[in-house]
Computed example of a mutant assay.
Amino acid sequence: MKNILIIDDDIHIGNVLEETLAKEGYSVIRAYSGTEALLVLSTTHPDLVLLDLMLPGLNGEDILPHIKDVPVIVVSAKVDVDNKVDLLLNGAVDYVTKPFNMKELLARISVHLKNTESMRVSSELTFEDIVLNTNTHVVKIGNTEIKLTRTEYAILKLLMQNPTQVVTKSLLLDRISADTPDCTTSSLKMHISNLRKKLREVNNKDYIEAVWGIGFKLRTE
């Protein structure tokens, strides 16, 4: 079930949106101010955001830069063309002017969710509960983002691209050398150790195993 965050202080409009979206099979979260929206976003990752601009506290323009990797449809009474252009350039995927046609809004929501899903499929590598985004270089286990060095990221990416194979030490060094000149034969073991530690700290699970004398592979049960 796709999860949609409505950020709007107009209770009536929010209620209508929530009721309609629920009937269409979406899960809905509500935020009634800019400050509350940031709090919600710090603990949840919705599939799409409907963002009003005129909010108490932080306004929609202030919130938009804080919304990462989520399609944002601005739903606002503001009709200024320059304002629309600025918002679209600063991260919004669409702009719907109030009052809006509900069928049109639902169609736009469906289109942007499909577009986002297509982009994620092409740009994400997954292994069990690890997700690596090759566009943003963000690595997550569940909802926890893992801060990796450039070398650690390159190693994990190569292992996730070959999830069932043993990747030899020589292949690892050859494939990642262009992006990570700091990784050498003598330092590879240290980089692998640091990567394993960072992944293990999330849920005490070891995702990478050494194959003695050959290289490394992702650990499967």
Results as ranks from 00 to 15, higher is better:
Asn143Leu: 11
Glu124His: 03
Tyr32Asp: 10
Thr134Gly: 07
Asn83Arg: 00
Pro181Gly: 06
Glu61Met: 09
Ile29Pro: 03
Thr97Ser: 15
Val40Ile: 15
Glu124Leu: 07
Val49His: 03
Gly14Pro: 02
Thr184Met: 09
Ile29Asp: 13
Ser122Ile: 15
Asp182Met: 10
Ser122Asp: 14
Asp62Gly: 04
Glu152Gln: 06
Glu61Asp: 12
Ile67Lys: 00
Lys84His: 08
Lys68Arg: 04
Val16His: 07
Ser122Tyr: 08
Glu24Gln: 02
Asp9Thr: 02
Ser177Met: 15
Ile29Ala: 15
Leu53Gln: 01
His45Asp: 12
His12Tyr: 12
Thr164Lys: 08
Val166Gln: 13
Ser42Asn: 08
Ser27Asn: 07
Leu5Gln: 00
Asp9Glu: 13
Leu17Thr: 00
Leu58Lys: 09
Thr116Ala: 14
Ile208Asp: 15
Pro163Asn: 14
Asp47Pro: 00
Asp10Arg: 01
Lys157Cys: 12
His45Leu: 13
Leu17Arg: 00
Asp62Val: 01
Thr184Ile: 10
Thr168Tyr: 04
Ala37Thr: 00
Lys147Gln: 06
Asp69Cys: 05
Leu159Gly: 03
Ala107Arg: 02
Asp47Ser: 02
Leu89Trp: 06
Lys84Ile: 10
Ser42Phe: 03
Ala92Gly: 01
Ile4Thr: 01
Glu36Asn: 04
Glu152Val: 00
Lys68Pro: 03
Gly34His: 01
Asn203Arg: 02
Ser118His: 08
Ile63Thr: 03
Glu124Asn: 06
Tyr207Ala: 06
Asp52Met: 05
Tyr32Trp: 12
Leu171Phe: 15
Val111Gly: 06
Ala92Phe: 05
Lys98Asp: 02
Val49Trp: 03
Gly57Cys: 11
Thr20His: 05
Leu125Tyr: 04
Ser186Leu: 14
Arg200Tyr: 12
Pro56Asn: 07
Ser118Phe: 09
Val121Arg: 14
Asp62Leu: 11
Ser33Phe: 12
Val111Ser: 13
Leu199Asp: 05
Thr126Cys: 14
Tyr95Leu: 11
Ser123Thr: 06
Thr136Trp: 07
Ala154Asp: 08
Leu218Cys: 12
Pro56Tyr: 11
Pro181Thr: 05
Ile7Cys: 14
Val81Thr: 10
Val75Gly: 12
Thr126Asn: 11
Val81Arg: 11
Asp69Asn: 05
Leu158Gly: 12
Arg120Ile: 09
Ile73Phe: 07
Tyr32Cys: 13
Leu39Ala: 12
Lys78Asp: 13
Thr44Tyr: 10
His45Lys: 02
Lys169Ala: 14
Ile176Asp: 09
Val85Ser: 11
Asp179His: 08
Ser187Asn: 13
Lys23Asn: 04
Ile155Asn: 07
Leu113Tyr: 03
Leu48Phe: 02
Asn90Phe: 03
Ile146Val: 05
